[in-house]
């Protein structure tokens, strides 16, 4: 599985959504991505890449695309 596939899988499983909903997806724009869903998403991403995301980055992860930028800081190449 590529890193991008892992990243997408984390979103789909944590938020319970399908792949076609990912592009352009932003925090709090769907019921599934509320504050509880956000922490489930963070846990899924951390598990997928065996990383620990800093609190500042948890706050900044405000969209599917922004998340891609942020996890690059943790030496994960998508």
């Amino acid at each position: 599985m590529t890193n991008l596939e892992k990243y997408n899988k984390a979103f789909m499983e944590a938020l319970g959504i399908t792949e076609d909903k990912l592009a352009g997806l932003e925090y709090n724009t769907i019921p599934e991505w509320d504050s509880v869903g956000h922490m489930q998403l963070i846990a899924a991403i951390e598990d997928a890449f065996d990383i620990m995301i800093d609190t500042d980055d948890i706050i900044d992860l405000s969209s599917y695309e922004k998340g891609k930028e942020l996890i690059a800081k943790y030496e994960v190449e998508l």
């Binding site: 922490m39 489930q40 963070i42 846990a43 951390e46 598990d47 620990m52 609190t55």
Partner: peptide, 13 residues
Amino acid sequence: ILFSQYIVKLMLR
């Protein structure tokens, strides 16, 4: 608070 933020994140998993 910082330590709890991180540990609670592990608990939520």
